[in-house]
């Protein structure tokens, strides 16, 4: 994972609540065994018309949304399925940060593990951002700030470990693997725990 410190981009907005991961990437594209190339299907059934052409009404298809790396979305973004294909698709599509007033747990966890920043802001700040698509924002991950063009600054909270991993491109599996001695000790101390599993047929 490459380090991510500052994101400077215009915003694209999807002002809909409860955008589920089936919306972000429909299930029929999950038969892949790789993580590459899913951006083509990001928001597939919104983005394309039945004949495969671009749907001009979809906000991210508008010319002014091209190249935007910050997505502002309605409340409870990423609800539903745990598919990590959702953040993979968004990243491959070019999104580096998602801002909402509420972001579903599993999506957020998946996103942060892949270097896709998720930011939860207060309702009124959220409303303002949604009402103003295309504004230029600067997100400073270290400082935990979003700077608006009018000079206003929104502060956001981010789990400290997630922040550390984003800023330094830390690989969390490596972190866990280093805990191997502790895991082994724990297993020995809880040996009875596993008896029923070991008698598995």
């Amino acid at each position: 994972m490459k380090p991510l410190t500052v994101i400077h981009s215009r915003t694209a907005c999807l002002p809909f609540e409860n955008i589920d991961t089936d919306r972000i990437i429909p299930a029929r594209f999950l038969t892949t065994t790789s993580r590459a190339g899913l951006g083509r299907h990001a928001f597939n059934d919104w983005r394309y018309r039945e004949d495969g052409s671009d749907n001009p009404d979809f906000p991210l298809n508008r010319p002014e949304a091209a190249g935007c790396r910050i997505l502002v979305a309605g409340r409870n973004f990423g609800c539903g399925s745990s598919r990590e294909h959702a953040p993979w698709a968004l990243l491959d599509f070019g999104i580096e940060a998602v801002i909402s007033s509420e972001i579903a747990d599993i999506f957020r966890s998946n996103a942060l593990k892949n270097g896709l920043l998720t930011i939860v802001v207060a309702e009124d700040e959220h409303r303002q951002l949604l009402a103003d698509p295309g504004i230029e924002l600067v997100i400073d991950i270290g400082a935990g700030t979003i700077s608006r063009p009018d000079g206003a600054v929104i502060h956001f909270d981010l789990d400290r470990f997630a922040r550390h991993c984003l800023l330094n491109g830390v690989d969390q599996l490596g972190f866990l693997l280093e805990a191997e001695p502790e895991i082994s000790t724990w297993e020995q101390q809880h040996a009875t725990h596993s008896t029923s599993m070991e008698s598995a047929t």
């Binding site: 598919r83 953040p87 966890s109 998946n110 593990k113 969390q172 599996l173 693997l177 805990a179 895991i183």
Partner: peptide
């Protein structure tokens, strides 16, 4: 509870998860 694919890899390799 449900986890993502990166975490599936974590559990396969270490039988553990990073969780709050």
């Amino acid at each position: 509870f449900g986890i993502g694919t990166t975490e599936v890899g974590h559990v396969l390799a270490t039988q553990c998860l990073l969780q709050r």
